[in-house]
Design a protein around this nucleic acid. Sequence first.
DNA 1: CGTTATGTTCGATG
DNA 2: GCATCGAACATAAC
Length: 268
Amino acid sequence: MPELPDVEIYRRVLERHGLNRRIAAVEVLDVGMLADVGPADFARALAGDRLTGTRRHGKNLFARRGRGGHLWMHFGMTGALAPFREDAPAHARILYRFEQGPHLAYVDVRRLGHVGLVEDVEAWLEAEGIGPDALDPALTAERFAEALGRGRRSVKAALMDQARIAGIGNVYADEILFQAGLRPDVPVSALDEEWRRRLFAVMREVLRTAVDCGAAAERYVERLPDDYLTKRREKGARCPRCDTPLETLRIGGRTSFYCPRCQIDPRG
DNA sequence: CGTTATGTTCGATG
DNA sequence: GCATCGAACATAAC
């Protein structure tokens, strides 16, 4: 589930296994994953180099290269970064081989992710139109409130808009709205400052909790608090708080789970 | 076979 | 101009 918490875990994987080690070779097993760079240039840029630092912004992961510039990864819907020693994991698309294992594999079943080279991260984020990271300490409640906007757009669509706040996807948007007690289809124009502050605090809490529970790990969902909606994301499930059957909505082509009793529309 | 799935982008439509 | 909707991308699981 590569949303912010999952990508944060991959950042830690990269930090732990990929930093300051000489890259012996890069194997591009699927050229289609590369964005704006050919396999030969990509491999040549990294082979012999070292990664000297990591950074995550929203769902994007960057690794600083010793020679300058950065390696960039986006995980799409099914991407992951996994260490391996002998055989590469199933659906591995790019292998980063170090002189001694473990090596790292960029894995992506559906191949909707992208990998490439980025020179200047700040300039790249600006050019891509990506908003402030949801967990950036510099993101204040005031900036968050402003970023949500004031239009007719639904609060869920706004939360998932990477140009406004970067890092939230379908699953965590539903969780944040459940924990905040807000229906997903409420237009942002209906949110007063108090609701915006509440949404901000809940967003931080939910994302931090997901990271702390080891997002992206096998069966990490089980470690989430019992009152988390994410544990019940399936048809016919009931609200973890009041046992009311959950309902679904389609917003932006994606399914939204919500509790019709615990989540309200501030307009009444 | 049909439906759905954590993301993003693009073209069409309101 | 802005927001929304469906389709597309590609693959697996139920």
